[in-house]
Amino acid sequence: MSVSLKQHNLRHTECREEVLNAFLNSRAALSHSDIENTIDDKYDRVTIYRTLKTFLEKGIIHKILDADGGSKYALCKNECSKEDHHHDHVHFKCTQCGNTTCMEQIDIPKIVLPQGYSREEINLLIEGQCPNCRQ
């Protein structure tokens, strides 16, 4: 997958580049603390938080709600924007290693809400053991 700051009209900063590379080099979703542990110590929590917020707004990453109440983030695979994220797919969290992965081959079925309700986001998290931990 090829993602660049330039294609999302973002000014290049060292922090943004390092956070983007952390996502590009990871096979699983990352939490804020995962990113802190992956990139250089020269960035404080607020700078990383702002970078994640910007990436969410630009459609570079999407948020995955964790069963424990936390958030993880993963790269968007399709062209996403702030107004239109295309990540209505299942997320799988391994109860043994803690990794969360996008399962894009499994679509969430269309859900028709009662009149008067409007959908903003769908989150479907399945927990179990990943293939690596089952071995």
Rank of each mutant, 00 (worst) to 15 (best):
E17M: 12
E18L: 05
F23I: 05
L24D: 01
L24W: 04
N25I: 15
R27L: 09
A28D: 12
A28V: 14
A28G: 12
A29E: 05
S31R: 06
S31P: 09
H32I: 15
D34E: 03
I35S: 09
N37P: 02
T38V: 12
I39G: 01
Y43K: 05
D44L: 04
R45M: 03
V46N: 04
T47I: 08
T47M: 01
I48S: 00
Y49V: 10
R50T: 15
T51H: 01
L52H: 05
L52S: 00
T54L: 15
T54G: 10
F55G: 08
F55Q: 04
L56Y: 02
E57F: 09
E57A: 10
G59D: 01
I60S: 00
K63Y: 03
I64G: 00
A67R: 11
D68I: 10
D68M: 06
D68A: 14
G69N: 11
G69W: 14
K72V: 12
Y73N: 06
L75H: 07
C76D: 06
C76R: 00
C80E: 02
S81V: 07
K82W: 10
K82L: 04
K82A: 03
E83D: 14
D84S: 12
D84I: 13
H85W: 05
H86Q: 11
H87M: 07
H89Y: 12
H89M: 07
H89R: 03
V90G: 00
H91C: 04
F92D: 06
F92Y: 14
T95A: 02
Q96N: 15
G98V: 10
N99Q: 12
T101C: 07
T101L: 06
M103T: 14
E104F: 11
E104G: 13
I106A: 04
D107W: 07
D107C: 07
D107Q: 10
I108W: 06
